[in-house]
Design a binder for these strands. Structure first.
Lengths: 220, 220
DNA sequence: ACCTGAACACCGTTCAAGT
DNA sequence: ACCTGAACACCGTTCAAGT
């Protein structure tokens, strides 16, 4: 964890605010009002300071967001007991990551910021890669397998978070207008499931898809 | 395609700008300068008008973005020839969608806006769902299969677009600091592949992962 | 070393008025 | 019906100066 303004031996003025206080307050705003409301200015007033004071403790807003994700992951990720079967090990590790990320709606904006969330997440990545190797994959293919899981997991979280957001401010659903006049000649299957579409896509099928993906990756 | 300000029979003042002109100019800005630079104000000056004139032709910026994606998809998506094997049909349809989306970096912001991109995309969704049904899945499971593919595809595009963006403005890579001091006792596999990580994750493995996922989904 | 004030260069959107 | 001007309520970030 880099601390860009290197802490010296108490030469100048004593700090009024700390990086920890910034992160703590930011997390509170995130929790209470959502990611849209977390702005440097808002954070500064909340903390009883000025926007510019923040820039003495974090490089910019992007760094702050990464720091927040890091902090959240470290506090929340708990290492699960691992099963013996390597394939199950992959699934349990992936599900553990998925669980904490899915519980945290503000994550979406930061999620794509990097493929490795934090040091805490490394252990989980290790389990996935190691599980694949134990399934008989080469190390290179095992890394590709991890990536496929990451794409699937990140995609699931982002797509579903967007859907939830849409449901909340009940915007006119684009889907409805697209589904309104389905041509049963052109797209018979979709016409057949049209009225169940909403229910079906609202179901949590993360684990099903994950198992399918891991099975497919392990048997090739 | 809804045209919210219903076109009447030429009562009042003749329009100076049209929705098509707005979309055309927006696409040009998107292409030339990226999605960050597309703002209502910028678009207005580019078009030789005022921000507020735009709001007479599109409800707001979100609607404009959906309109842009729609327009792009309609122009770009070409229906491929479909193989006989249902599993291959699913793969070909998914790859076709992936190809046009991946070629379009500004898509990412809109991608989560809805799971159905546009009417044009419906045919591709139909092929995927139908392919799964022909593999022996129930219609419900076929829709879940489509969703899994969508999560994987959207995730791949968003994660890789973010990586590309990062590489462009060569920001200090968070990953490097995380990888810098890997403990080979704690995470031996990662330590083993650490120096190949960059190369491995840069490789395009979309189709590999897709095939694994489809295999896994079709055999259960 | 740490913080402040003022400023730069922007945003999306609304409202009341003009043609 | 369509467009404009002015305004509201914001952004992230930089720079020069203060303590």
């Amino acid at each position: 964890m880099p601390q860009p303004p290197a802490p010296r031996k108490t030469p100048g003025r004593p700090p009024r605010i700390s990086r920890d206080e910034i992160i703590g307050t930011a997390l509170r705003i995130l929790d209470e009002e959502g990611v849209d409301r977390l702005t440097m200015r808002r954070l500064a007033t909340e903390i009883g300071s000025t926007p510019m004071a923040l820039y003495h403790h974090v490089r910019n807003k992007d760094e702050l967001l990464v720091l927040l994700l890091d902090d959240y992951a470290t506090r929340t990720l708990r290492r699960p007991g691992l099963p013996d079967r390597p394939r199950e090990r992959v699934i349990v590790a992936a599900e553990a990551i998925h669980e904490v990320l899915a519980a945290c709606p503000w994550i979406v904006t930061v999620l794509t910021a990097d493929d490795l969330l934090s040091k805490t997440a490394l252990w989980f990545v290790e389990q996935i890669v190691d599980g694949f190797v134990d399934c008989g994959l080469t190390p290179d293919r095992a890394v590709h397998g991890y990536r496929a899981i990451w794409y699937y997991t990140a995609g699931e979280i982002m797509v579903r978070a967007a859907a939830r957001r849409r449901a909340e401010d009940d915007r006119p659903v684009h889907r409805e207008s697209v589904f309104a006049d389905l041509d049963p000649e052109e797209v018979p299957r979709l016409a057949q499931v049209a009225d169940r579409w909403e229910t079906l896509t609202a179901q949590d099928t993360y684990s099903d898809g994950l198992r399918a993906l891991v099975d497919g990756l392990a048997t090739r």
